[in-house]
């Protein structure tokens, strides 16, 4: 089964990660990759480069970044293939570089099989 691990940081990080952080994260990703479980991973640029679209009836409101709130912003993700949620938890407990208040949210991805009845 596949999981998306969503990175929510307590505060928006510097535009570019430090070299030490990059190395440490690289090592962790390398371990995932060598175990054959890493499908995808990426970090997101600051919210100043992003935008939000809000839906309200027929109305679409577009707000350019940076976003007003600075807490719990999504800053990156992994997609991994794991045997169970437990395994994903065990792997990502060991993720480096995170600070007080940062969260990794682990969510299982739907597989096409899940929609078999709906099709």
């Amino acid at each position: 089964m596949r999981f998306m691990v969503i990175v929510r940081l307590a505060k928006e990080p510097a535009a570019v990660p430090t070299r030490a952080d990059l190395a440490e994260m690289g090592e962790f990703n390398d371990r995932l990759s060598k175990a054959g479980v890493l499908l995808e991973a990426d970090g997101l640029k600051p919210t100043s480069k992003g935008a939000r679209i809000t839906f309200n009836g027929d109305q679409r409101t577009v707000i350019d970044g940076p976003f007003a709130e600075t807490k719990e912003l999504v800053c990156g993700f992994w997609i991994v293939e794991m045997k169970s949620k437990d395994e994903a938890i065990e792997w990502f407990r060991q993720a480096p570089c995170f600070d007080n208040g940062d969260t990794l949210e682990i969510r299982e991805l739907h597989e096409a099989e899940d929609f078999a009845e709906a099709v």
Binding site: M1, S33, K34, A35, G36, V37, E81, K83, E113, A116
Partner: peptide
């Protein structure tokens, strides 16, 4: 076949994991 014990289809994932690991080795 689908609907059977999930352990068997999971072998595909096990094999893919082993294969991906082997590409690094």
């Amino acid at each position: 076949t689908t609907g059977a014990d999930v352990v068997r289809p999971a072998l595909c994932e096990d094999a893919l994991r082993l294969g991906r690991a082997l590409t690094h080795l």
